[in-house]
Amino acid sequence: MSFVSASNIFQSYNGRPILERVNLEVEEGEFISIVGASGCGKSTFLRLLLAQERPTRGQITVDGNPPAVEPGLERGVVFQRYSTFPHLTVRDNIVAGESFRRPWGRFFGAERKAARARADETLARIGLDHVADNYPATLSGGMQQRLAIGQALVARPRILLLDEPFGALDPGTRLSMHDFLSDLRAETGMTVFMVTHDLEEGFKLGDRVIVFDKPRWDPDDPGAFGATITYDFDARNGGFPYQTIKEETHVLRPQ
């Protein structure tokens, strides 16, 4: 049994099918990029993985546990926007990642002090220590997303879900965010699902790139059929899985 397993997922809204017959098996630690045209159910599938919605048919299990009915600690998420809390300072946003599971959502006394110190360490690691006392609205888009990812990670989720996390960033910031995410992933080894519009980004970061598309298309009624996974690429080694040179030869090759 694989770590995340989606079997025969159907999802429809008001009788309109969005997803049909989606099957996916993911091993622990894999990075899955999800691409596809707009309106092809990528974000719907992510919401199903998040357990924000439940599928009309089929079920998604994580580590063999019964399907979740609501979002919880097991899953971390970063959306394109609104992923940080605007009324908390940058430091308190990080502390919230640990404290929200407590009865009153906060730490008291010595625990609070320790949590703030840990948050400062985290902020230093993600390069936000100089703005610890600012509010998220004063941060640039890239810094806000770094904060959102940092906040999701301090909660130690088993799966990280990213919904176009870098969609609103400029190309330069995007590249540095890629490095940031790759480093974090190498550190934590967690399972990641990322919805993106950027194919290059999907292949660069992902171990697998799965494509959502509609296999059947009625030109008179574009909403008649739902989308499913039409391709599942192996994206390791830049997407050229069979070109790994396994033999030791005298030919020079790129390092």
């Binding site: 998040l50 924000q52 609501e70 979002p71 919880g72 600690l73 899953r75 971390g76 998420v77 959306f79 926007r81 609104y82 992923s83 940080t84 809390f85 919230a96 990642g97 929200f100 599971r101 959502g105 959102a148 906040q151 999701a152 909660a155 989720p157």
Partner: peptide
Amino acid sequence: EMIVKAETLGA
């Protein structure tokens, strides 16, 4: 999104 985020933090 903000509510869901809080849910994933265990709130």
